[in-house]
Amino acid sequence: MKHDSVFVFSNEQLSYRFSDSHPFNHLRLQLTYDLLNELQAIKPGQILPPRMATEEEIALIHDEAFIEAVKSAGKGQLNEAVAANYGLGTDDTPIFPHMHEAASLLVGGTLTAVDAVMEGRANHALHLGGGLHHGFKGKASGFCIYNDSSIAIEYMKKKYGARVLYVDTDAHHGDGVQWAFYDDPDVCTLSIHETGRYLFPGTGQVHEKGSGNGYGFSINVPVDAFTEDESFLEVYKSAFREVTAFFKPDVIITQNGADAHHFDPLTHLCSTIQTFKEIPKLAHELAHNYCEGRWIAVGGGGYDIWRVVPRAWSYIWLTMTGQVDSLPPTIPENWIRKWASQAEEELPYLWEDQHIVPKIPRKQEITEKNHKTLEKALYHIRNEMKR
């Protein structure tokens, strides 16, 4: 039976957890899933359990030596100096027991979503446990061990012969995915993110356009700190539409970090929930216009896990399934009651933010900067890219 959309989820995915105090906390998966359940927005037949990715699948992107290092680290068998060479045991990416298995399950979740869409069992698939876009071929980075999106893209190329458009709206630049396909003309990466002048990983400048046969297929739109909804969304919509029209992908995969919100503790952008409501609408539209509906969405960053992430990520599923316009005005009371005692912040009552908290009064100046950045980023689409 074909579903319009499938939701890849298992409580076992919460095992990807560095420590109780680490900002990357996959409890947000459970929070989002529970919120959608309270809305009665997910049917049992739409839920797919993630599978474990094989080592051969992980090796589509990652070095075998790195995979072995991750396995050894998770067993407590990797010394500190060797671990550091692989980006393991750092403040960002600490070692935890069974980390290979936990990371492999997240990769397998994204591959589960890919197969559901590419085999025609669903038009759209959502896997919020994925989106770990900082992982490199031989090194963990920025909370990311294995780079599930890169693996999924290479998997789609090899298994399905797909031409893939990857769109990343995390506040942090999607560096690991960009560099994995920097010379590949069959993969186009579009990243809209806070400028690296202020934020990890410091890359994602307009001049990073790809190399060799892939020149022109890497597109970056760094926006200034303190950017608000209007400017962020204009940049996103303009870039996404123009890139999709040019590249004409077979499938779209979107990375949906929720850390551009003004509450996020690790970034400097000033979006409200309105941005996260609008982001999936355009992905849905363009997937149907260009890809016969083939759209895979993954999660990503988002470190205000109580007030922001569940609402932001719920909008992706509600958009995929055509339920976003029938939302009640308030968050279900049962969900608030269930999680209020654990929440570090007061849980939201309304779906929309009740007010905007501007961080600086220079909105017009920032908007003008972002327009200039967008024009530079799109210049090579109009004038330099080759088919």
Rank of each mutant, 00 (worst) to 15 (best):
M99A: 14
A53P: 10
V107H: 09
A59K: 03
G74T: 07
N85V: 00
H100K: 00
S72D: 09
L48M: 15
T93S: 15
E101M: 07
S72I: 00
V70A: 06
L88M: 02
N79H: 05
E55N: 04
R51C: 05
L106M: 14
I95W: 04
E55W: 01
V82E: 15
A102V: 04
T54M: 06
Q46S: 15
I67E: 06
A81H: 11
I58D: 06
S104C: 06
A65I: 04
L106V: 13
L111W: 13
G76M: 10
N79I: 01
T93Q: 08
L111D: 13
I47P: 11
G108K: 11
D91G: 00
A65P: 00
A83T: 03
G76L: 10
V107L: 10
G108P: 12
A116R: 03
L78S: 04
E57K: 13
P49D: 06
F96A: 09
R51H: 08
P94A: 04
F66W: 07
T54F: 03
T90I: 04
N79W: 01
M99G: 14
V107A: 11
T54W: 06
Q77S: 14
E55I: 08
A83R: 05
K43N: 10
L48I: 13
I58R: 08
P50T: 03
K75S: 14
I42W: 12
T54L: 13
G87Q: 06
M52R: 12
H62W: 12
A116Y: 06
G108F: 13
K75L: 15
L88D: 03
M52K: 14
G109P: 11
T112D: 14
G109Q: 07
H98Y: 08
G87C: 04
I95V: 13
F66N: 04
I67T: 05
